[in-house]
Write a protein that binds this DNA or RNA. Structure first.
Length: 181
DNA sequence: TAAATGATGTCCT
DNA sequence: GGACATCATTTAG
């Protein structure tokens, strides 16, 4: 077993901090006996009922209840009738927040990385759908995160989140984080 | 019930 | 830059 498997407390920090800590970490997916490994390169934070871009701002519903649950679990839902979004629930149970994984670099056997630049591409490529909603990040779930230590937060570009123009003043929050190449 | 609406991707110009 | 495919979820009635 891999010693770098992140534990639940990794996700207890402020969601914007967790989103930055995840940059450079590896997301591992086991599917049909094969291991798919990818480096996380872009994330976004969605936090609390006062964040109008966060689904939880509409309160707890059948869809959003996963975000109110314990941290370190998957929050997967569909948008635009065709794309699944991969999020990881953060902060203490009862506080709704999650990090959206927007970009990854897939590590391939030939050492050429496959760029997954968009949340819809990620879930499609690593075979995730709403059946995995609520799963714990763990070897047993066949999806987990391996931590990579970062000395500081240099090399991170911050910007407004994508596709949330409807979110009023919240749309300007710099909660999109990209790893600099 | 029914209408409105997206944490997007792809193709077009 | 813009059109649009396509449907689960939410909200209104």
């Amino acid at each position: 077993m891999n010693k770098k498997l992140v534990k639940q407390d990794f996700f207890l920090d402020h969601t914007s901090v967790v989103a930055q800590k995840l940059l450079g970490c590896f997301l591992i997916r086991e599917y049909k006996g094969r291991i798919i490994k990818a480096k996380i390169t872009e994330t976004e934070a969605y936090r609390g009922v006062h964040d109008l871009a966060c689904h939880a701002s509409k309160g707890i519903t059948e869809r959003t209840k996963t975000m109110f649950g314990p941290p370190g679990r998957l929050y997967i839902y569909m948008v635009y009738g065709m794309h699944y979004m991969l999020n990881i629930v953060t902060e203490k149970e009862g506080y709704p927040a999650a990090v959206l994984i927007r970009g990854m670099h897939l590590l391939k056997p030939n050492n050429i990385s496959e760029n997954l630049d968009g949340p819809g591409k990620i879930t499609k490529r690593i075979h995730l759908n709403k059946n995995q909603n609520g799963l714990r990040l763990d070897h047993d779930s066949k999806i987990w995160v391996e931590a990579v230590k970062r000395e500081n937060r240099s090399g991170i570009i911050k910007g407004p989140r994508i596709g949330v123009d409807y979110a009023g003043h919240c749309k300007n929050w710099k909660w999109n984080f990209k790893l600099v190449d």
